[in-house]
Design a protein around this nucleic acid. Sequence first.
DNA 1: AGTACTTCGTGAATCCCTTCACGAAGTCGT
DNA 2: ACGACTTCGTGAAGGGATTCACGAAGTACT
Lengths: 279, 279
Amino acid sequence: MRQPRRGAGRLSGRSSMPEATVARLPLYLRVLTALGESGVHTVSSDTLAAAAGVTSAKVRKDLSQLGSFGTRGVGYEVGILLECISAELGLTEDRSVVLVGVGNLGHALAGYGGFHARGFRIAALVDADPSRVGERVGEVVVRPVDELEAVIEDCQVTIGVICTPAAAAQHVCDRLVAAGVTSILNFAPTVLSVPEGVDVRKVDLALELQILSFHEARKRPSPGPPAGAVAGGRGPGPGATVDDEAGEVVRMTRRVVPPPSRVAPDVPLPAVAHGGDSE
Amino acid sequence: MRQPRRGAGRLSGRSSMPEATVARLPLYLRVLTALGESGVHTVSSDTLAAAAGVTSAKVRKDLSQLGSFGTRGVGYEVGILLECISAELGLTEDRSVVLVGVGNLGHALAGYGGFHARGFRIAALVDADPSRVGERVGEVVVRPVDELEAVIEDCQVTIGVICTPAAAAQHVCDRLVAAGVTSILNFAPTVLSVPEGVDVRKVDLALELQILSFHEARKRPSPGPPAGAVAGGRGPGPGATVDDEAGEVVRMTRRVVPPPSRVAPDVPLPAVAHGGDSE
DNA sequence: AGTACTTCGTGAATCCCTTCACGAAGTCGT
DNA sequence: ACGACTTCGTGAAGGGATTCACGAAGTACT
């Protein structure tokens, strides 16, 4: 970028911004905020990278996407970066959010200070369960789901957070979209269908744990029985049918393995190609 | 493919399994479980793809990684796939998990049935706050953090979930790792440093919302204040007032961050789904 | 001024993942 | 049995993102 230096040249990457970069900007924002509060005014890509857990090359490329400008030989000014990133992420204007489903997770989210601190205002909490309506969580009162559309209209809500059971998620999603919401954060363990133009991000807790499980399995190659068992010939265990329990249970030929008894300190672990050092 | 055919031999992709594929396996698992419960015995890659919100090509490539075997002209047998995927993810043996920090989010997670249903056993809930110790959440009782190491040892815990405030996360992480945990799911909004061989996945709620905010900003090009003052109004974070940096402060506090001696993680975000339901 | 050193910005190479396209292998209907 | 049809498996092409490497541009110090 050949910006003539500091004059706050167009700070929007406008046209294209790599999705991967977008995903890291909030991270930088958090780190920079902390640095700023510590009284730091300047930071190098190396330092920032270390604090954010990424490589310095990534940091530089990401920041260059912002049409950003550091000072060679010195680094970046924390204050300026904060402004640029905030602007790029659209955090300079408050955004109203509506949260549907105030169960355990919904409560946790509603009480999570991180949202408000970053310019997200919870316009309303909504729940279908009458017994939960009226309850006060934080500074907001739970409202009946009937008012969903009205709230979205009144507060100019464009982001919806779904914390309902999986079964209700799609229906809620449809209502949100119909009412004008164009971005959805889905915590329900189900895939949502939305019309084009609507963004959906999902957070699946069990899914994350399963990914970890995969890597665990790679580290400690099942000490138990040999593999021949599973998927032996074509004839799968006739009883392979899942015995359910509550909507979604996978438990099948579960075999509990005897205590691996390995607590050995060694185990160099083959540095799993996965995370290596920075991925 | 490297392997010639592999109808039933070792079903583990063994050597290499694309990280992207690993991230989708739990998704397929969920969909397949639902299908199985509906009495479906066979699915085509098209059907499975539609249900999982991905493309059929992806499904086929992913499943072929398992050394899997569908029947051409027919599809895959649900039961067999369930077995294969479960085995691949290491879900055929129970895994013990310890959850540290039983605040709002911790409560939500502890009560989340999805874990237990998939073979994850919460060996213990731990909290530093004495007032929370003894409380019963679900079937588990909150124990003092002092017992962390003992629990990990006794229950062969290899996965830890951190739901503490950001400030305590690194310390907890260190203790977990020292005690033998090799996989960590971090909900605290901070970057954890871990030694090589330990996997960390992070889930940052505010971060997800900020990514959505970015896309929102692209959809509705800031109707508010013109480009004049970049981020005048609300600052990015608390106390991050950047304006007061009256020009001197030449103190080059370059070395801001403490010894970044260890490796830092950077896991890919949880899956995303933009726009159309099926990409 | 000049030399040494730091750090940004960025093309180029590389790696990983996705998408495409098509042959192979099986089923179904007559 | 045989042809039409379906669907898997998989090279190969295409895109993105990460990493590498190095020139450019600034500071620090003598």
